[in-house]
Design a protein around this nucleic acid. Sequence first.
DNA 1: GATGAATGAGGTTTCATTCAT
DNA 2: CATGAATGAAACCTCATTCAT
Lengths: 213, 213, 213, 213
Amino acid sequence: MLKPLTKEQTDSILRAAAGAFANKGYAHTSVRDIAKSAGVSVGVIYKYYKDKGDLFNSCVIKSLDTLDQVFEAVQSKGRFIMEMAEELITSTQSFARTDPEYFRLYHQITVSGSSLMTPEIAELIEGRTAKLYTGLMQNASETGEIRQDMDPAMIAFLFDNLLMMLHFSYTCGYYENRFKIFCGEDIGSRDEFVKEQLLKFIGGALNGLHTGL
Amino acid sequence: MLKPLTKEQTDSILRAAAGAFANKGYAHTSVRDIAKSAGVSVGVIYKYYKDKGDLFNSCVIKSLDTLDQVFEAVQSKGRFIMEMAEELITSTQSFARTDPEYFRLYHQITVSGSSLMTPEIAELIEGRTAKLYTGLMQNASETGEIRQDMDPAMIAFLFDNLLMMLHFSYTCGYYENRFKIFCGEDIGSRDEFVKEQLLKFIGGALNGLHTGL
Amino acid sequence: MLKPLTKEQTDSILRAAAGAFANKGYAHTSVRDIAKSAGVSVGVIYKYYKDKGDLFNSCVIKSLDTLDQVFEAVQSKGRFIMEMAEELITSTQSFARTDPEYFRLYHQITVSGSSLMTPEIAELIEGRTAKLYTGLMQNASETGEIRQDMDPAMIAFLFDNLLMMLHFSYTCGYYENRFKIFCGEDIGSRDEFVKEQLLKFIGGALNGLHTGL
Amino acid sequence: MLKPLTKEQTDSILRAAAGAFANKGYAHTSVRDIAKSAGVSVGVIYKYYKDKGDLFNSCVIKSLDTLDQVFEAVQSKGRFIMEMAEELITSTQSFARTDPEYFRLYHQITVSGSSLMTPEIAELIEGRTAKLYTGLMQNASETGEIRQDMDPAMIAFLFDNLLMMLHFSYTCGYYENRFKIFCGEDIGSRDEFVKEQLLKFIGGALNGLHTGL
DNA sequence: GATGAATGAGGTTTCATTCAT
DNA sequence: CATGAATGAAACCTCATTCAT
């Protein structure tokens, strides 16, 4: 079959690769297996991607692009932090159900030895989120929406930490298990509960009205 | 040279393997290199460990044993949560300087494809922490030390999430970069600041005296 | 774009292929690159030539046709051997400047593994030269122009050996370097000197008026 | 069979490789085939040689070492050029029968694309011969043993050209065929004749007592 | 029991050749 | 008929594992 790859097929390469990388890790995934599961020949992969690393990177970039859409939907101005937090959590929960690979793939880049694990890539990926969140916290701090006794950057960092762990807890094997161990086998089906609890936790952290301690 | 293996040598294997796995990742670490850097032959490694995966597992188990010591030092009864939190943070910061490999190795088991990434192992590793923290939060909730409108298990989970991210942010490449991007290049030398900020954040989250939401 | 192949294009294939084979060797030359540099599709190459080997053979044949023209210009009857030798050397020097690929390609067929390296091809290529030179030497021997104590065929062979080495020394990488090592870095710009020296050498060899030995 | 390679086996690798490279060329020789024909595993070849190129280089170096022995046997001082020439021819003829691979391998390095085809390697290989022969010609010229109207370096170069072609004509496929075409099918069994003829040719060339030109 | 060289399956990548358009 | 993307065999090379010493 020497007809040009259909859009479906080229998509299928990225989907197969993303799935394999996400689930088995970069090193345990072979290009041959990706080709087979995408229903194409090995050679064609090297027409579209320089090498295995390039294919991996493309998967990650694509997953990040998609993840970005989640956040962009939330960035509308003039909203309260906690409203945005709620939406972020809702999005995460729903997205984790429909496209878990994207979060899993994002997790892969945190792994040592990944070709993407460079400061430059980290800057590229985290830089925007960091600026965005820090800016939001800055504003919210100035308007008195949140506590003023903390560094906005640190608040942003810790806030993002909680969201990141939520991503992983819904999609990445080990974290999923851990989630259940902490919160019960059925935690995966109690989205409303999780959201409500996390919002309370974040609310307290951001508000900071606490005695002494 | 047919000398029997000394205790030092068996330790040395585990130490060499742990270091290599932690820093280069499972796939990029070769049994041969471990043997060389441990000063033993490849053969003895296969005498003590079924295969490369088994050796990796043993490293992780050992690293967890060591990490446990950090927590045990904190588990003394009758202390305030926030006191313990402070000590956990301090320990993490100091331990991340002296033995980063242990945290890095711990991070490795969260990676898909790791042979350790099974529910059983997760239970083994996280079970104790989950019970311990949940129990502590339960007590603290009952004594009014912390808020009573949240599920102790969820509090424990989110509390541990923050600590886990702190571990990684101090020791694991990508997270280290991300830490700097959010909080500045010099964040690695501002331990007191980080501790103080994190305690404020946790304090607010646990106390939860806030208005709205 | 389904345009029929013009004469220019077929020429262009052969020229591109010859250049690539000559300079990079058979194995390092890809059909795809030839097609690209000839401005045609891969498919048409396989329409005109059975396979890569066939294309190579055609290039060689063509280069030999061209080289033959050099010799034909010299074959006019009734001339002295040494006059012809001088012209052959001059032609070689000038041709090596303008079309080095032809000599390089000729060199390629001497390489083991070339599909052209068969007795039949050798006969085709060398047969004519051998007959021509041997005949010339035979005549020159009979007229007393050259020594009579040697086999004309051997003289022809050794004479051609010297010319062949001259070809290679002017055009083929390794031989070019060797030429410089023996005769100095600037030997490539001393054509008159080389010609004069080679003529003296050949002159002595053909004349053979020497004492004893 | 995991016992260390015997001397015979390691020798066999080099012999198998040399044979294959010499006869099929670098590009057409696969490491797997070499391993098979040497009766060892693929892996072991990469223990002894960094990569395929390194193996090739080692074969060439070894062949040059061996070829050098032929020349060293002739370098004794105070001998007449023509005596040495005779011995060089005799050696070449006998060596071409016993170890044709060495000459064939030498021929391979003249091929474009060979990793050994660099100016440095050429200098290494040809430099010594060039110096040696030029020196000999210089002396012979000063003592009046050979003509004084030619550049010693050019004489050395042309002299070596004739010997090189003799090597190839006895061992390298295409040149063997060409030899037969020029001098008859049975030329391979007329060593005495060839030697005598070549000596006459060289004698005349070196002596140069001729009229015209 | 310890050794470490040898094994060989399996990984990534290239490219001559085919054939649907 | 020309096109050139797709094919997939086969190349190089690595390294987990074995086993003769």
